[in-house]
Amino acid sequence: MQHEFWATTILDFLIALGVVLGGVILGGLGAFITDEYPMHRMLHLADKLKIWAMVAAIGGTFDTIKAFEVNILGGQLDLAFQQLIFIMSAFIGAHTGTVLVRWMIQGVI
């Protein structure tokens, strides 16, 4: 059980990070192809993709919120706390991706 918790936490972090970084890189390539300024588009995409990265990492917001509700109402606060940690892990992954994008292109703009 402990191994599964940490595996899910790490996967949520890395999936959210990957969604932001992958989306920004491919969006920047698309901006280059369409003759837009890629760095501005990449900054814009990093902010826009953050929430979608979290949703992708936790597998859809409705299931997570439903599990959170059932665990709290059922008195299983440890499982509700685990759901909060999964959400936080996804947020930290998405935010890390955004920070990395800003750091990589800080001298270009």
Rank of each mutant, 00 (worst) to 15 (best):
G28C: 03
L77E: 05
L26T: 09
K66P: 00
D47A: 10
G28S: 04
G22Q: 02
G97Y: 02
G22V: 02
T61F: 14
A57N: 09
I65V: 09
A80G: 04
T8G: 14
F5L: 14
Q83L: 09
Q2V: 08
W103K: 09
D12R: 15
L79Y: 12
F62G: 12
G23H: 00
K48S: 14
Q106T: 00
L21E: 03
K66N: 06
I10M: 13
F81P: 04
A53S: 11
M88T: 15
V20E: 04
I85V: 15
L26P: 02
G27D: 00
I25C: 00
T9R: 05
M39L: 09
T8F: 13
S89V: 08
V101N: 03
G30E: 04
I33W: 07
F86G: 06
I15G: 02
G59D: 15
L49Y: 02
H40V: 10
G75F: 00
V99H: 06
R102P: 00
K66L: 05
I25V: 06
V55L: 15
F62T: 12
I25M: 03
V20D: 01
L100M: 12
L21D: 03
L77F: 09
A16L: 10
F5S: 11
D35R: 14
G23P: 00
L73C: 09
T98Q: 06
G27I: 01
S89T: 11
F81V: 13
A16G: 11
H44L: 13
Q82F: 15
G23V: 02
G59H: 15
A94N: 03
W6M: 13
A90D: 10
